[in-house]
């Protein structure tokens, strides 16, 4: 398992397209969203932790799409490359190799994500003179972003077993916008519920509350049953 983890990590992290696609989407984030300049006037409490929370919120709006899409071709790669015969003839178990592949590929695909996030945190800490922001960044990343990536990794590993990777990618992008970004006022959605993979429940709960003036993501989390009822009647429970 460790060998597979190591080599799958190495092969994925050296993949040029991984860095190119992340860079393109990251550029969109910088141009279209305030990732470079964080307006923190609406926040309470520690400015550093709020800044890291908002930075995470911006990153998780689009980068998980790249994450899922770049994972989608990995589960079937051994079969496509016809390496599976050699691998299956070794005494290493299939399950161990699958776990190693999942962990290695997911970790490698998260590296550009982490570089973008911690790069921003480092910049903030240096420019604003708030080294504590690095600690808040680590907490936010581990508690709020990583669980979402773990779920998306599992989805991106299971989905292409049922669908061709290209079809899965299209559906994955649709899922991301529907299930994580679209406001509940528009249509029944998983957005801003506990089922959303953006990690905002954790972020708002343990890192920083949402900005006072914010809409959409600022809606306070309710409960699983509330989320379920929201799916049935979108306009009702959404204002909880």
């Amino acid at each position: 398992m460790i060998a597979t983890l190591r080599y799958e990590f190495a092969m994925q992290v050296r993949r040029p397209s991984l860095w190119i696609v992340y860079a393109l989407v990251f550029a969109v984030l910088i141009v279209a969203l305030p990732f470079g300049s964080l307006d923190l006037n609406d926040y309470e409490g520690s400015v550093g932790r709020q800044a890291m929370s908002v930075a995470a919120q911006i990153l998780v709006s689009l980068l998980p799409i790249v994450y899922g899409c770049m994972l989608a071709d990995r589960p079937s790669r051994d079969r496509v490359l016809r390496v599976d015969g050699i691998l299956d003839a070794t005494p290493s178990g299939r399950t161990a190799r699958l776990i190693g592949k999942y962990a290695g590929v997911c970790a490698a695909t998260a590296v550009p994500f982490a570089v973008a996030y911690f790069g921003r945190a480092l910049l903030y800490a240096v420019v604003e003179g708030q080294p504590s922001a690095l600690g808040w960044a680590a907490l936010t990343f581990l508690a709020s972003i990583v669980p979402g990536l773990v779920f998306l990794g599992a989805l991106a590993f299971a989905g292409p077993l049922l669908l061709p990777p290209m079809v899965f990618r299209v559906l994955f992008v649709a899922y991301w916008f529907w299930g994580n970004l679209i406001p509940a006022a528009m249509m029944p959605t998983l957005s801003h519920t506990i089922f959303s993979a953006t990690g905002e429940y954790v972020r708002y709960g343990i890192v920083a509350p949402p900005p006072r003036a914010a809409s959409g993501p600022a809606r306070r989390p309710c409960s699983t049953s509330c989320a379920r009822s929201r799916l049935r009647s979108p306009p009702g429970c959404g204002s909880a």
Binding site: Y7, R15, L81, V83, G85, I86
Partner: peptide, 10 residues
């Protein structure tokens, strides 16, 4: 195997 495959990036 007959249809030997490898990882091209290694």
């Amino acid at each position: 195997p007959q249809d030997l495959g490898v990882y091209p990036d290694l």
